[in-house]
Design a protein around this nucleic acid. Sequence first.
DNA 1: TGCTGTGATGTTAGCGCTAACATCGTTTTA
DNA 2: TAAAACGATGTTAGCGCTAACATCACAGCA
Lengths: 347, 347
Amino acid sequence: MSNRNDPPRQRRGSEQITLKQVAEVAGVSAITASRALNTPERVNDATRERILEAVERLGYVPNLVAGSLASSRSRFIAVIVPSLANAVFIEVIHGLQETFEAQGYQILLGNTDYDLQREYQLVRTFLGWSCSALVTAGLRHNEACLGLLRQWDKPVMEVMELGEGLDLNVGLDHQDAGRCMATHLLKRGYRSIVYVGACMDRDYRAAMRFAGHRSVLEAAGLQAPLIELQRLGSLDAGAEGLDRALAELSKVDAVHFANDDLAVGALLHAQRRGLSVPEDVAIAGFNGLPLGQHVTPRLTTILSPRETMGRLAAEQVLRRLDRILDHAHEPPSQHNVGFTLSLGEST
Amino acid sequence: MSNRNDPPRQRRGSEQITLKQVAEVAGVSAITASRALNTPERVNDATRERILEAVERLGYVPNLVAGSLASSRSRFIAVIVPSLANAVFIEVIHGLQETFEAQGYQILLGNTDYDLQREYQLVRTFLGWSCSALVTAGLRHNEACLGLLRQWDKPVMEVMELGEGLDLNVGLDHQDAGRCMATHLLKRGYRSIVYVGACMDRDYRAAMRFAGHRSVLEAAGLQAPLIELQRLGSLDAGAEGLDRALAELSKVDAVHFANDDLAVGALLHAQRRGLSVPEDVAIAGFNGLPLGQHVTPRLTTILSPRETMGRLAAEQVLRRLDRILDHAHEPPSQHNVGFTLSLGEST
DNA sequence: TGCTGTGATGTTAGCGCTAACATCGTTTTA
DNA sequence: TAAAACGATGTTAGCGCTAACATCACAGCA
């Protein structure tokens, strides 16, 4: 049994300045100091000034971990993307980051490398950080992950693709995008059109675009051959894709690539091979990366509003977070950001 | 005064499963459950199994916020970069992320947009999260930031450039890189060489490369004209840079760009303008982005080991963290990752 | 036999902060 | 003029977890 006369246990803690010390210096209680920093309007001007002065003088840095535990909410937003190698996700993250940081939220970034099991683990970790909301790329998750997210009571935003999701959704219709480009190619008079994708089992949105592409070609009574590369999209892979398309199939007149990285890689490779685009072979992409507009001929592609998608997603989440404070309930929502066919001279 | 017979206050908390509940189900105390999850080797096999079963059954997700507060350390690594738009930083981040995540650390990513005041604020926030270490791009910080970091007792890693830093340092010598390219251009016989940079007051590493470049040209008795663009590096900016270099200066025979984005932008623009590279004008870059090897002619550039730099930086930080556990003290260190001159046909 | 060491588990007391409720003087309202 | 409302601040009790110390059974040893 411990006795009240026992010496106190050895302290741990990080020997940092605490709010209590700030409060002492300012001659107020800890809670008033807390209020001065978090809800300044609830504190008398003179008092607040004294407290802020003490903060400055002591070099106080708030312990956000303690604050989050006490209030059971952090100002974290979990963001989960399948890859950092792809400029597309970087731009979405950028849009998210700008919008969230302006409101004092910090992004917790996770990278799944296109692995749903990894996604589940990231979600678990992130929930453990009491995130205020979670943004994830895509509508596909494994069962364990779905289970966690369904019973979680904070906003979940699924971006990149459009559809029935868990809660909030901002994206575009990839099948439609595939149809759009295929229709364009047909209208231009191409008849022997190959689709080239990379790791489409993982990048399933590319597979959705192919599905749209195929439906249009088949409706026109044409075949829709597919070449699938065993590595993720890159300029190199695009070069390989073009070579294979031309080698494995006869009289190909157009290649529809799953993304701009592949398409530009192919276009530059065509230059090296001395093929003229689009006379010898037409090339189309998807995403609308700036690079595609700098090559000659300019790439025909589908422009997706990536940064806008990020910004919009963040805004929707922020609005939802406000509503939660008001104890209002909101239904799930979907928002189609659409896309634009960007015509270059490559088709 | 409150009385011991008063009803208990209303609970807050997030109604999540807690470790205590897991422990109850498993018939042990909370600390044993904690040990089963964090230091499994200190718990009897049978007991541990019972606990893990309870974790599974209840769908327990550890509250990392509480854990961090109690132990006054999180498994966060703060990573601060000046931009996400630049592929260079993305690759460094990738290297860091892979290495840290493998050891169970989570990256907290901050973006300063090349603003040192913003860096200070991010550092403040991140210290508030009890990060285990901090990785930041560059050796320049403002006074407030330096003050915070100097009195902080955890590893600080400065990457990208080489030099006397706060603690750990992994990078390359940018002046040397500038000298290397200038020497190469001279050796090739170019005599009227322009340097084109973008926002070099912010991207001061580009300014360091220019300093190296200039020293070589001046030592050879040549002028070292500089054109500075008012926007950050991009393909567009590179095109503008080339136009201005050719318009504002007479008989330019080579342009040394501050980075590959600019250089490739210029190279593609030269194609559009019908200029032949390197006959009409030679073009050189810095970074060694894959794109530079796909254009025709291939770009002469300086290859910096970006992902390696990230991985190496992470490894050094991890080693230091291990040593701290052993209460060993380590001196500051510097590590030069070097660079390679990558010869294309553009010079 | 008693002593020490060891492995497994438990008890206690916080980590630093904030939600909930309490207090009190002043102002507004019926 | 009493009652209610309000604004500013304080008191108390945790948030969920883990460090430090405590306990206990049992093994090893002289």
